[in-house]
Amino acid sequence: MSDVVLQCKGLAVDVPGKRLLDGIDAVLTRGSITAVLGPNGAGKSTLLKALVGLQEGVTGSVFLEGREVDAWSRPEIACRLAYLPQYRPLSVPLAVRDLVAMGRYPHLGSWRRPGSADQLAIQAAMDRLEISHLAHRDACTLSGGELQRAFLARCLAQGSPLLVLDEPLTGLDIGHQLQLLALLEGLAQEGRTILWSVHDLRLASEHARDAWLLDQGRLVGHGSVAEVLGSPQAAKAFGVRMEIGPDGSWRFLLP
């Protein structure tokens, strides 16, 4: 089996009057944990949406497990790729367990009732995100962090080998951020591939192995996190100086 899980070639996104992404070539290998970095408006969310086949105005090619993403049906994509959209509060009442159970939809189709394997996957996902005690709560009444964990549990319940997470740390306190990052590292060690966008460069430097750097819709750097953060392109994109301090951690300074 090829080690390449996701690949894009010449990916571009156009909306009327504007090019949002231009000429993106990138590859994700199995078991990697890759942070998508970039300043505000660089195109991080657009890139993730284009990679999972949800963005309009896309040209170029995206290959999921060696096949063009558009050639897969939506349930087939969802069985291979769990996508967490950017955080948005809920407007309709729904029990947390029902929300997490949606992760099993691509495996069930329209009619099949969840079996014991599905129930186990739902419960395991809730346990890993520590939301089992909220199972019967209305998701509308959850705090932002709790709701984000419920959405992440939905992604885990999906059981897909690739997770594409758009700002998964939004709304989480520092304790839950670190727990989630440890969870992502554990998932990568189990062989799952993780692509996540993040604003906090310090957390990215400590928890991602690889990074893609976007600036004004172009992929201006990729490689290990240390290589990307230490590059002049990163300093230019963020407008800050980045250097490794005496304790080995990254320091970010105004120029």
Binding site: L54, S73, R74, E76, A78, L90, S91, M102, P106
Partner: peptide, 16 residues
């Protein structure tokens, strides 16, 4: 149920 969460969420769980 999935559409009630938004189109992105619905498509993310395999709904056309």
């Amino acid at each position: 149920d999935a559409l009630a969460l938004g189109e992105d969420h619905a498509q993310a769980v395999g709904i056309d």
